[in-house]
Design a protein around this nucleic acid. Structure first.
Ligand SMILES: [Zn+2]
Ligand SMILES: [Zn+2]
Ligand SMILES: [Zn+2]
Ligand SMILES: [Zn+2]
Lengths: 165, 165
DNA sequence: GCAGAAATGTGATAAGGTAACATATCCGTG
DNA sequence: CACGGATATGTTACCTTATCACATTTCTGC
């Protein structure tokens, strides 16, 4: 099946236009397969999130959507974002009260976010071991995990190097 | 040194009055040792958080503080809570936009929160392996972690059993 | 074509969080 | 003790984030 491209992440220099385009097409395929409708607002919201590897606040997305002729009230953005999150096409980044496009739509994954506090880039790391460790810790207390939030704040490679100088 | 009491956690039946009292005293000791002032508002805020093993919103804490004769404006609560968080006496639970008393003040620990979606109880699990796994995953992308948020939403043992019937 | 379901537009409002500044308290020093 | 800087508190105002409720439109299966 569609193999992950482990080398392409937010912190690696890459052809992002292609990266975004590929991800959008994957998302469309996922939506089609799930039988859910990636309507114009929803698709546009996803495109906006995909423009950069960072998280955007709902109101920032809303402004962009409004500029494109969609409604300009909060529910417009929140509904589109909610749809994307529910269908695994975007994630919510709690620490930032913001949303980021999912870089691996359709792939089963427990998202781990690495958030650069300097440049704001957000990378989605696959980290099954983190999830395993979390499940283990929870299990020892008899807790049944349904959803997990794992987010790290720090410095991306680039900003770390710059800071070291 | 003060040994952790691994058996006492939010999901285990225990003498909570004693649990809260002990934790408050540990917090006082930590504050004294760090040379920071656990003033009346701050102490009261911590007591309020310690009343139950759950997270409280800032405004909920504020109402309680106001009822006790402290100010009734948001900064009153936010400042007290910020102090507690900065000094490791409380944690912020991002998924809930809320705060919870730290159950191991003074102990070095990477907090992992287990949040029951049914009864609202919040347990703080020690989970160094989770942190290790996260650091490992971050390192592979060249990311330098400074702070991490790890929170799981699900069902506590009690609520899981009840749901199974 | 038509009925029900799904999606969108819009106004209103709740909930969470911060900036700024005046006042009061604490605490080391002379 | 007194005074001056640092720390903490009170209070006003405001900003950001998020949700509710309800009317209108668009889609989909029949
Ligand atoms: Zn890219
Ligand atoms: Zn960076
Ligand atoms: Zn307890
Ligand atoms: Zn429970």
């Amino acid at each position: 099946m569609a193999s992950p491209t482990p080398s392409a992440n937010a912190f690696t220099q890459h052809d992002h236009a292609h990266c975004a385009d590929t991800t959008l097409h994957k998302a469309e395929a996922v939506a089609a397969e799930k039988g859910v409708r990636l309507t114009p607002v929803r698709k546009r919201a996803l495109e906006i999130l995909l423009e950069e590897h960072r998280a955007m606040g709902a109101y920032e997305v809303l402004d962009r959507l409004a500029a494109d002729g969609f409604g300009n009230q909060p529910p417009v953005a929140y509904r589109a974002l909610e749809f994307l999150v529910e269908n695994g096409l975007a994630h919510r980044v709690r620490r930032l009260n913001a949303f980021a496009a999912c870089m691996r739509p359709g792939e089963e994954h427990a998202p781990v976010f690495l958030i650069c506090r300097d440049c704001g880039e957000v990378a989605e790391a696959g980290a099954d071991e983190v999830r395993q460790a979390l499940l283990g810790a929870a299990d020892r207390l008899g807790f049944h995990v349904e959803r997990a939030t794992v987010e790290a704040l720090g410095l991306c490679p680039k900003c770390y190097q710059e800071a070291a100088q």
